[in-house]
Design a protein around this nucleic acid. Sequence first.
DNA 1: AATGAATGAGTATTCATTCAT
DNA 2: GATGAATGAATACTCATTCAT
Lengths: 213, 213, 213, 213
Amino acid sequence: MTGGVAFRLAGPYCYPMEKKLTKRGSKRREQIVEASFRLFSEQGYHGTTVGDICDELGVGKGVFYWYFKSKESLFMELLRSVLLKLRRSQQQALEGEQDPVGRIEAGIRASIDFFRSEPGYLSVIRTAARYEEFSNFLHQGQEVVVADTATHLKEGMASGAIRHGDPELMAHGILGAIFHFVEVYFDNNGHASTDRPQLADEAVSFCLKGVLV
Amino acid sequence: MTGGVAFRLAGPYCYPMEKKLTKRGSKRREQIVEASFRLFSEQGYHGTTVGDICDELGVGKGVFYWYFKSKESLFMELLRSVLLKLRRSQQQALEGEQDPVGRIEAGIRASIDFFRSEPGYLSVIRTAARYEEFSNFLHQGQEVVVADTATHLKEGMASGAIRHGDPELMAHGILGAIFHFVEVYFDNNGHASTDRPQLADEAVSFCLKGVLV
Amino acid sequence: MTGGVAFRLAGPYCYPMEKKLTKRGSKRREQIVEASFRLFSEQGYHGTTVGDICDELGVGKGVFYWYFKSKESLFMELLRSVLLKLRRSQQQALEGEQDPVGRIEAGIRASIDFFRSEPGYLSVIRTAARYEEFSNFLHQGQEVVVADTATHLKEGMASGAIRHGDPELMAHGILGAIFHFVEVYFDNNGHASTDRPQLADEAVSFCLKGVLV
Amino acid sequence: MTGGVAFRLAGPYCYPMEKKLTKRGSKRREQIVEASFRLFSEQGYHGTTVGDICDELGVGKGVFYWYFKSKESLFMELLRSVLLKLRRSQQQALEGEQDPVGRIEAGIRASIDFFRSEPGYLSVIRTAARYEEFSNFLHQGQEVVVADTATHLKEGMASGAIRHGDPELMAHGILGAIFHFVEVYFDNNGHASTDRPQLADEAVSFCLKGVLV
DNA sequence: AATGAATGAGTATTCATTCAT
DNA sequence: GATGAATGAATACTCATTCAT
């Protein structure tokens, strides 16, 4: 059983354009990815034009379309890569955790650390959530995380550590709360960031213990 | 102390354009509001053009600008109206509740019922969250709800009903979870709706009791 | 021989719409003329909308078209009226002057005083000069003034007071210089007004020396 | 001391958009400049749409915006170029003239020749005078010419060649007269052009007599 | 006389994408 | 691989004028 997110890697948009790239070409491609990540984070998807990206690198627009089929497919690649990174840090965090509750806690902490480490990640995900073109893909990823978390919850219920209830719904509750915390406290979108060291502890408390005595 | 959300009613965008409208005019205005509510819900803000709205009603484009200053201001009006309605249903639900925990529960149930009653409401809010022009306004509203919920939480802590912790953070957790539930279960955005009658009960359980035994 | 400007009073746009107006109607009409004079002066022709004018008076747009055929015809009326007033003050100034040089001087002084008395007059004329629709009419008026001044110049040449030369061209020189002085020193268009008492004296000096033997 | 007009060459709008243009691109850009010069001259600024310009060349609208930031900036470029050309022909004319009166005469003749050579130049300047967006720039240029002419006048006063008086005002008189002559005699705006060979001579007479002792 | 409502052609500008070289 | 050039549909908003009441 996997302990993290198992995003579907197949499907539309999945593989980068089939093209044999020279060393120089790969470098150029990577430059585009980096520049666009920065720009999308700062200005949003529609706020960033293909021209912006090319200007940033000082290249003509043809370059963009040499490496990417479209603006949309570039963003999809970015999104997929962010989700993959998130999944990997979650998986790493779970390794070695035997206790289902411990796994959930580790996942929560890993997620918070992930978004704290690079606010651009949150930005990409939030942007993706905004547009139908991407939200389906995001949804899929989300469902996998939920299913995974639900598995841990079920284990916990079986072992008596977790109260009985709808595990899918609980998982959604956790996910919603965590994502909201991250949005509120790491937001770089014009509002003052209000990160606090104990955020992870309190988030874990909230999700695991609830608010009642 | 108010028991619900107290969205600021003053400020920019607050009052509809000052214009004396005849009965016919008010009707037309209302038609525009309704049509645009529908179209924005279905196609999003940028996906809906002023032309779409006018075509829907079979009128010239000038009509739109007779009643509204701009597309943006119409959307703001829609947004304000949705937030106001939400606030009112929350306030109604709180009336008569003495117990702080009861108030929180009532607020949660009212919110869920609200978005269930009309999926377009959620759509408008989500759309607003997407664009900086509106997200500030939304943010303000959110902060008020959070502050309000935090007040109930503090009362509960004082009375020993609620565990000690950061009330603002707890309030954000509740809000994030609820909003996420609503998004997942009432979403009409291409994904099959999966509403379930016991959603409110389980949401209340999650938020109030937590997931641990 | 006339001593001033004899603007053609016939032609297109010439008579106000044929309509019997009640006392109240005449008043309303006058209000429109006054308000639009002010607005055109401040904001220019295209910068002033029919809506602006009606808003200024707090009336509906129908009112405007009850009294005026079009925005254009209102402006023509304004223009005609300004030119008429200018002509009248010039004529008054000439009365009693026997000497042709004295007549020219009087005309110059009268013109300067006229535009100094009400900067809006200049504004209307300048606006008229900007648009083909009105510039023809203005041109006609100008030609009459020129012809008139040329007559004085010819008389002066006959009497030996004025050097020989093309009288029409001299007249244009005077007119051009005067109008430019007025524009530069009475301009209210964002540039600081720099009116100076001795302007008329110096203008007369410049123009008369230019034509004197 | 400069002997002509020293239009400010720095400031906003001053440099054309920085873009590397191929030979083909430069050609296209030049085509746009030429076509728009013609159209602006014939139809005025607001009377000429970006669409007109592109249609004239049989290209898509995007082309325009590839080479120019906006319609306004294109017109500014046109205006700046016309003023620069005018200044250059004035400067050339002054070279070698030692006598201040001679310099003034040369400047007058150069200006008249300039506008006679290409009526479109006048049209551009007149158009610029119509719109606040451009009139400030024009004003600056004008002030420089006036200051320059005033310098010559002062020299002439010192040497006793020119009567005493306000040099700035005299300079404005000359400028106003010349510009008016040009407008009246070279106008192509629907009125028959009535150019006459001796115009320059008579203009010089009028202006110099006006200022001579 | 007057009002509010409606019209609709008109305009500058943007931008993802394609193409010729 | 890369460039600059070109495309053209799309969009929000304006405003003189007309109309129904």
